[in-house]
Design a protein around this nucleic acid. Sequence first.
DNA 1: TAGCGGGTTGGAGCAGCTCCAAGTCAACAG
DNA 2: CTGTTGACTTGGAGCTGCTCCAACCCGCTA
Lengths: 116, 116
Amino acid sequence: MKISKAAKACGLSADTIRFYEKSGMLPDIPRGPDGHRDISAKDIDWLTLLYWLRETGMPLKQMKRFTALAKAGDAGVAERRQILRDHSAELGRRRALLDRCEEVLAIKIASYGEAP
Amino acid sequence: MKISKAAKACGLSADTIRFYEKSGMLPDIPRGPDGHRDISAKDIDWLTLLYWLRETGMPLKQMKRFTALAKAGDAGVAERRQILRDHSAELGRRRALLDRCEEVLAIKIASYGEAP
DNA sequence: TAGCGGGTTGGAGCAGCTCCAAGTCAACAG
DNA sequence: CTGTTGACTTGGAGCTGCTCCAACCCGCTA
């Protein structure tokens, strides 16, 4: 699969995919005879997971750690699971922030007087 | 109030407050005879609102627009309300993303096998 | 009178993209 | 066969939104 199709499939931009590859966050992606990337369905799965992680604010540093563990295979499974658990907990905290912010906004909007 | 106390009160860092001031996102903050900022309770309210907006991902550009409207007084109220409404809607979308991500993580975690 | 704990400024550095220039190659039009 | 289009390649510059740093000033206590 070419990069632009892959981008649509995983939700990241083509530039971001290239950037993640440069940063060592992707498995080795083979090139065709024309030098173009040949991105597999497995790669798409990985990219999609990365998409979710960064979309919900995981720092690159942690994504790199996660990648390194994935490359290590079974040995890294426990820590990978822990990272995902931690991130899941982080999402809970973020949701609480969103909720609190909605309250703040509601109060502020009300203070401007109701809808015109 | 001095800047470090203000930082604690509003949730932003002292550096961020200075940065926001440089960027024109704060009302004019007077200096004492020693050159130090004298931040008022009203300023804290404003900073706290900015804290919530940026904490939930509003871009600086929009925060600047919001600030400009606030400086314009009553004339800008309708648009300010609209900006907050739009942001509130945005929060809904973000919550949906968080929810979706939690599902994805749960599936991924399960695929590693249950807790050791 | 020296040192400490705050504050001030301008500017550099960082994360995480995002965009651009310059080049290559395949495919198709004329 | 040549020319144009379009999708890809790379390296590197630019952008956002902080975050940190150096160099300095000021008031205070020992």
